[in-house]
Measured scan of single mutants.
Amino acid sequence: MQYKLVINGKTLKGETTTKAVDAETAEKAFKQYANDNGVDGVWTYDDATKTFTVTE
């Protein structure tokens, strides 16, 4: 399945996608991506759209 990440950071904004077997695996990949880019915020997930959002 394909999952999307929407980033609403202080210095980084945008979107990225990943393919993963489940939401938990996608979340780990997205959190690593956010961490690598210095984004630390509040996470939400919408199962209907398979979209994670992180807001600083």
Rank of each mutant, 00 (worst) to 15 (best):
D40N: 14
A20E: 04
D36T: 09
A34W: 03
A23V: 12
K50N: 08
A48S: 12
L12R: 07
T49G: 04
D46N: 09
D22I: 03
V21G: 10
K10E: 08
V39F: 09
D22M: 04
T25M: 12
L5A: 03
A48V: 11
E56M: 07
K31Y: 05
V39N: 03
T17A: 07
Y45W: 04
G14C: 14
D47N: 09
M1R: 10
Q32D: 07
T51V: 06
L5K: 00
E15A: 08
T11G: 08
G9M: 14
T18C: 13
A34H: 02
V39A: 04
A34Q: 02
K4M: 08
E15Y: 12
D40F: 15
L12Y: 13
D47Q: 11
V6Q: 06
K13L: 08
W43Q: 01
V42T: 11
T49D: 04
A34C: 14
V21Y: 13
F52P: 00
E56Y: 09
K31W: 07
A48F: 11
T44E: 10
G41D: 01
K19T: 15
A23G: 04
G38K: 08
T51F: 02
T49V: 06
T55Q: 06
E27M: 13
T51R: 03
D47L: 07
Q2V: 15
K50G: 05
T55P: 01
T17S: 10
Q32P: 02
A29T: 14
A20C: 07
A26L: 01
I7F: 07
E24L: 12
K19R: 14
T51S: 04
G38A: 06
K10P: 08
D36P: 02
T25G: 09
K31D: 02
T16M: 15
L12K: 09
N8A: 09
G14D: 09
T51A: 03
K13Q: 11
D40I: 14
A23Q: 11
W43S: 00
K4Y: 14
F52R: 00
G41N: 01
T49P: 02
D47F: 08
N37T: 07
G9L: 15
T11D: 10
T49Q: 06
T55W: 10
V39E: 02
T49Y: 05
A23T: 10
A26F: 01
L12P: 04
N35A: 15
T44R: 06
K10G: 10
E15Q: 10
N8W: 13
A29L: 14
K10H: 12
K28W: 09
K50T: 04
T51Y: 03
T53P: 00
L5Q: 01
T51H: 03
G38V: 04
T25H: 11
D46S: 06
F30T: 00
A34N: 03
V39W: 08
K10M: 12
Y3D: 01
N37G: 05
A23I: 10
F30Y: 02
A23W: 14
T55N: 06
M1T: 14
T11E: 09
M1V: 13
E27L: 15
L5T: 01
D22S: 10
A23H: 09
K19C: 14
D46H: 06
T18M: 15
T44A: 09
G9S: 11
V21M: 13
G41P: 01
A20N: 03
Y3F: 12
V54D: 00
A26R: 00
V21P: 15
N35C: 12
G14R: 12
D22E: 04
W43L: 03
L5Y: 01
V42K: 08
D22P: 01
A48Y: 09
G14E: 12
A34M: 07
V6E: 04
T17V: 10
G38C: 08
A34S: 04
Y33T: 03
T51P: 00
E15K: 07
W43T: 01
K28H: 09
K28Q: 10
K13F: 11
N8K: 11
T16W: 15
T11N: 12
K19G: 06
V42W: 10
V54Y: 02
T49I: 06
N8M: 13
T49H: 07
A48R: 10
K13W: 09
L12S: 08
V42R: 07
T11I: 11
T17E: 08
T18I: 15
Y33Q: 03
A34F: 03
N35S: 14
D47S: 12
M1Q: 14
K28E: 07
T11S: 11
K19F: 15
K10N: 10
K50Y: 11
W43D: 00
E56S: 06
E27K: 12
V42D: 09
V21T: 12
Y33W: 15
D36F: 09
A20L: 03
Q2C: 14
V54E: 00
D47G: 08
F52Q: 00
T44S: 12
E27S: 09
G9E: 03
N37L: 15
V42M: 09
E27T: 04
V21L: 13
T16I: 15
Y3G: 01
T55M: 06
T11Q: 10
D36E: 11
I7N: 01
T55I: 08
D22R: 04
T51Q: 04
L5D: 00
F30D: 00
V6I: 13
T51K: 03
M1S: 12
D36G: 06
T18R: 07
V6H: 05
N8Q: 11
Y33R: 03
Y3H: 02
K13S: 11
A23L: 12
D40H: 14
Y33G: 01
M1P: 08
I7R: 01
G9N: 05
Q32N: 08
K31R: 14
T49M: 06
N37F: 13
T53N: 05
V54W: 02
T25S: 13
T16V: 15
D46Y: 04
T53C: 05
F30H: 02
M1L: 12
T11K: 12
K4Q: 06
D36M: 11
W43R: 00
G9H: 08
K28D: 05
T17W: 15
T44F: 09
I7V: 09
A26H: 00
T44H: 11
Y45M: 02
L12F: 14
Y3Q: 01
Y3T: 01
T44Y: 07
A20Q: 05
N35L: 15
A34E: 01
D36L: 11
K31T: 05
K4P: 01
K28T: 08
E15D: 05
Y45N: 00
F30R: 00
I7S: 02
V42C: 09
T53S: 06
T11P: 04
G14Y: 15
T17Q: 09
T44G: 05
Q2G: 06
D22H: 04
A29V: 15
G14L: 15
A34V: 10
T44C: 07
G9A: 10
D46P: 00
G14F: 14
V54H: 01
G14V: 14
V39S: 03
T18N: 05
K19Y: 15
T49E: 06
Y45A: 00
N37C: 11
D46M: 04
Y33E: 03
A20M: 04
T11L: 11
E24M: 12
Y45S: 01
Q32E: 09
T53V: 07
F52T: 00
D46R: 03
N8Y: 13
V6L: 08
K4E: 03
T55S: 08
D36W: 07
T11F: 14
N37V: 13
K13I: 10
Y45V: 02
K4R: 13
G38N: 10
T17M: 11
V42N: 08
D47T: 08
M1A: 12
D36H: 08
T55A: 05
D22Q: 04
A48G: 08
V6Y: 08
E24H: 12
G14H: 13
V6S: 04
K4G: 04
F30N: 00
V54C: 07
T53H: 06
T16F: 15
Y33V: 05
A34G: 03
D47K: 10
A48K: 11
G41I: 01
Q2L: 15
D46Q: 05
K13Y: 11
A29D: 07
N35E: 12
F30A: 01
T25A: 14
K28P: 02
